[in-house]
Simulated assay, not measured.
Amino acid sequence: MPPLICLPGTAGTMDVYYKQILSLSMKGYRVISVDIPRVWNHHEWIQAFEKFLDAIDVHHIHLYGTSLGGFLAQLFAQHRPRRVRSLVLSNTFLETSSFSAAMPWAPIVGWTPAFLLKRYVLTGIRDGPHEPFIADSVDFVVAQVETLSREDLASRLSLTVDAASVGPLLLSDSLITIMDTNDFCAIPQQLKDQVIERYPGARLASLKTGGDFPFLSRPDEVNLHLQLHLRRVGVEARPDLVIGMPKDGAGGSSSEQKNGRRDTDDAPEDDKRGSGSTSNENELPLAPEGTDTQNLESAPLLLNGFNSNEQTVAANKVLSNFTCEFIILNLLHLYPGTLYNDWKCRNLDSLCR
């Protein structure tokens, strides 16, 4: 089953799609989220992403990209059409000329300090009062930006301003879904309209709200549209492959079922143990391990490392010890009788006095 690979935007990392991974993977879909590699032009991106697919042994994929990730997904579908089965594009664009015009210092982006790069990236995120779910998504992405190194930020901004545009795709428009938010977004509405005009036969999925990161602020709606897209392009869910999911649909874990069987069997075992203990009360206990007879049987094995004289001396010691113990055991039952007779004689003597 070809996986759905999620590509983040300039300010995102692979962690931003955790809600999609949790939801869709539990339904039986294969979802992979990746980071944008540290490359400096779009040709390097295409080669690096193809090497990644070869490394994980994946030949055909479905791509879901937002912002810069959507642009890179279109470029990969253009240059590697045999590997891309479908596209889901969200708040993305077709060309980079408008971004390069707004960033005149693009030629020196590789030497720009990290704090300036972070400030430039964060200025693209709308600052102001948000709905709680949108504010939470912004806070999450801002925290992700803080984890990016200077090289990572410079690489992503270089991909944003590198002169490139998406050409005609061999992929049918019916295999493309465009999912945009209608409230506000860092991508200008004009650029989003160009994407809709380029793919007139694509399926449109409009979100009334969601901001720049609808996959975090509106995860239920985004997951629903992704699931509908995968079904439409012929991807069937495989819930039987989900780890820990019973194939027969029965609830409960295997450990609970084992515990249930153990509970039903415990009572008979206790009864058997109780009846066995009463029947064995009058029986003599078995001889413990390590008795003298066992020592005698193992004596030849222990003596193999000695010479003939030492073997004779050791054997004599073992036999003498065994003989002494045998005599003591035979005379031991006479000792209580002797003590009893001695005690009885002393009592008679005291009475006579």
Rank of each mutant, 00 (worst) to 15 (best):
I21H: 10
I5G: 08
L94N: 10
R273D: 15
I61C: 06
K272T: 13
G70T: 05
A186I: 09
F322A: 04
D349V: 11
R273I: 13
W105F: 15
V161S: 08
R38W: 06
Y64K: 07
T323G: 02
L216D: 12
D248S: 14
H333N: 14
L169Q: 00
L89C: 03
K51L: 12
G124T: 02
R80S: 06
P129S: 15
G12Q: 07
D15P: 05
I32H: 05
P129W: 14
L4V: 01
L157S: 11
L75P: 06
C324I: 02
L331M: 01
H130W: 09
W45P: 03
G12R: 05
T112I: 14
H42Q: 04
V88T: 13
L348S: 15
R198M: 04
A114E: 15
P336W: 00
P168C: 01
I32G: 07
R126I: 13
Q189D: 05
G210V: 00
Q20L: 06
S90W: 07
Q227E: 00
I5H: 09
I328P: 01
V84W: 02
S149N: 03
H43M: 03
K51Q: 05
P239A: 08
E283S: 14
H229N: 02
D15A: 08
L175Q: 08
F115Y: 15
C352I: 14
G249Y: 09
F326P: 04
A164D: 02
Y29P: 08
L72A: 12
G211I: 09
N223L: 13
D180G: 10
L332P: 01
E236S: 11
V142M: 15
P113Y: 06
G337T: 05
G290R: 09
A143H: 11
D127Q: 15
L7F: 10
S165A: 12
Q74N: 00
G211K: 12
S279E: 05
T291Q: 07
N295D: 07
P288F: 11
R353T: 13
F215H: 15
L159E: 06
G251Y: 13
F215P: 09
Q294H: 15
G69S: 01
N280H: 05
D263H: 13
L319P: 01
N91Y: 10
L72T: 05
R85M: 06
S350K: 09
T293S: 10
T147L: 15
R231N: 01
S155E: 08
V39I: 01
W45I: 07
D162L: 08
P104E: 12
S149D: 03
V161R: 10
F76M: 08
Q194C: 07
L339G: 02
D271S: 13
W111G: 10
D193R: 10
L53E: 14
G249R: 01
N280Y: 03
I5N: 14
G234Q: 02
S100Y: 00
P188E: 13
L204Y: 03
R80T: 08
A102Q: 03
P336N: 04
L207Y: 11
S174L: 05
H333I: 13
L94T: 13
